[in-house]
């Protein structure tokens, strides 16, 4: 099993770099940065972290709805030339609400566009002699069905039940294909309610960003929205804890091993602990402690 840490890029770059350096020192395998309109520009954060680390793998999440294929490839060209072959790309559709705020409105044929992005990016990067893996960040059934065209997959949820469902949707896969999870996480030594609230909000954003179809398949739709269906506005009171649990990893550090074993048996080979696990150097250390790093 490989372990990664997603670094939220809303805080100042020197603070993010400090966390990246600590992640490497603690022996984590990768750090991930997602380029979203609300965050700092991913390749610059990646560059800053890479300049202060030497071996940790750095993953970058990009939406082809916000960046052209060439802009994505050129970022990898600069990074790989300057810091070596330790970068990985994850293509994601991106948060629709955030993209609409910055004037991106065309979301037709999401699946086809992501697939085309993968093909074009791979072609362009090969032309330039670049070598990096391209993974898919996916959740719903339509996206899962194209997962096998990528080098690996990052599922945006973490409960064994949904992972099992996802694997059946992916269909047959090659041996080298890696399945990972990327979920809001809070592994703690001493529980802090404020950090848990951040986890709750983070998981809530993932859940509310999920498609109706996906929520219906999982049997959450009615529990969330009742018979009247999804409200027009994004206002939402409280999401039931059982649903939050399906989309986030939250437990005392001593229990993590048990959970890891469970999902390892399902074929998961990579866990990326997402915000708020990177909340502070201490929360990163709690995670490393739980992994015996």
């Amino acid at each position: 099993m490989k372990y990664g840490l997603h670094l939220n890029s809303e805080s100042k770059i020197d603070r993010i770099v400090q966390k990246g350096v600590e992640a490497e020192r603690l022996g984590l395998d990768s750090i991930w940065i997602c380029d979203m309109p609300s965050q700092r520009y991913g390749p610059i954060v990646a560059s800053a972290i890479a300049s202060r680390t030497s071996k940790i793998q750095i993953g970058l999440g990009f939406s082809p709805f916000l960046h052209t294929y060439q802009q994505i490839v050129s970022a990898f060209y600069s990074l790989i030339n300057a810091y070596g072959e330790r970068f990985e790309l994850c293509l994601v559709p991106g948060d629709r609400n955030q993209l609409q705020k910055v004037g991106v409105f065309r979301f037709k044929s999401v699946r086809d566009r992501i697939l085309k992005a993968k093909v074009e990016i791979m072609k362009k990067s090969e032309e330039q002699g670049l070598n990096f893996e391209i993974s898919l960040g996916a959740q719903g059934p339509k996206m899962l069905r194209i997962a096998s065209s990528f080098d690996s997959l990052h599922l945006n949820f973490c409960s064994p039940r949904i992972i099992e469902w996802a694997k059946s949707e992916i269909g047959s896969i090659e041996n080298f294909f890696q399945v990972g999870i990327f979920a809001p996480s809070y592994i703690y030594d001493i529980f802090d309610q404020d950090i848990y609230e951040l986890l709750y909000r983070s998981a809530k954003a993932v859940i509310l960003g999920s498609s109706d179809r996906f929520l219906k398949i999982l049997g959450f739709y009615e529990e969330l929205y009742g018979v009247e269906g999804r409200p027009d506005n994004s206002f939402f009171e409280r999401i039931p804890p059982n649903i939050i649990k399906e989309f986030s990893i939250s437990m005392p550090f001593k229990k993590l091993k048990e959970y890891v074993l469970k999902i390892k048996n399902l074929g998961v080979t990579n866990i990326i602990f997402s915000y708020p696990q990177d909340y502070s150097i201490d929360t990163i250390r709690d995670l490393a402690k739980s992994l015996n790093k």
């Binding site: 520009y41 610059i44 052209t68 060439q70 050129s74 970022a75 060209y77 600069s78 990074l79």
Partner: peptide, 8 residues
């Protein structure tokens, strides 16, 4: 559309 990303 050349080799490097300008910001990186």
């Amino acid at each position: 559309d050349s080799l490097h990303n300008i910001f990186t």
